[in-house]
């Protein structure tokens, strides 16, 4: 098996692991880890596609490679917002669970 094919399989497995992690874990930080894992798997598949497109003396197609760089920065932004929300939630509520608290009649909106 060639390198790119192996990494395609690895990327698919990582995406599966990410989907698993998001659906089963309760703690939002673990969901976030799973989202990052899923994202890295998606980027990896894109990288393999870039590698398949090696041409004109380049080791890979630069277009997907550049898109992955943009994608990594965008995914990082999401993580940064999520972590800020998480720590704020921890400070405010003393816990980070996403389950709703019992409805509070006094709460004004």
């Amino acid at each position: 098996m060639s390198g790119p094919l192996l990494f395609w399989l690895a990327g698919s497995a990582l995406i599966g692991l990410g989907v698993y992690g998001i659906t089963v874990n309760r703690h939002p930080l673990r969901k976030l880890l799973a989202l990052n894992l899923l994202g890295s798997g998606v980027f990896l598949l894109f990288g393999v596609i870039a590698r398949r497109g090696a041409a004109a003396g380049l080791g890979g197609d630069p277009v997907p490679q550049a898109l992955v760089i943009t994608g990594i920065v965008v995914a990082f932004s999401a993580t940064a917002i999520a972590i800020a929300l998480l720590s704020q939630l921890q400070s405010k509520a003393g816990r980070t669970s996403l389950d709703d608290e019992p409805p509070d009649e006094e709460d004004r909106s």
Binding site: S40, G47, R51, G59, G60, Q65, I72, F76
Partner: peptide
């Protein structure tokens, strides 16, 4: 990423990812 000839991505992944 280094192994699939995407050095720019490897650097970004190490730095940001």
């Amino acid at each position: 990423w280094v192994r699939i000839a995407a050095i720019d991505v490897a650097l970004t992944e190490a730095a940001i990812g």
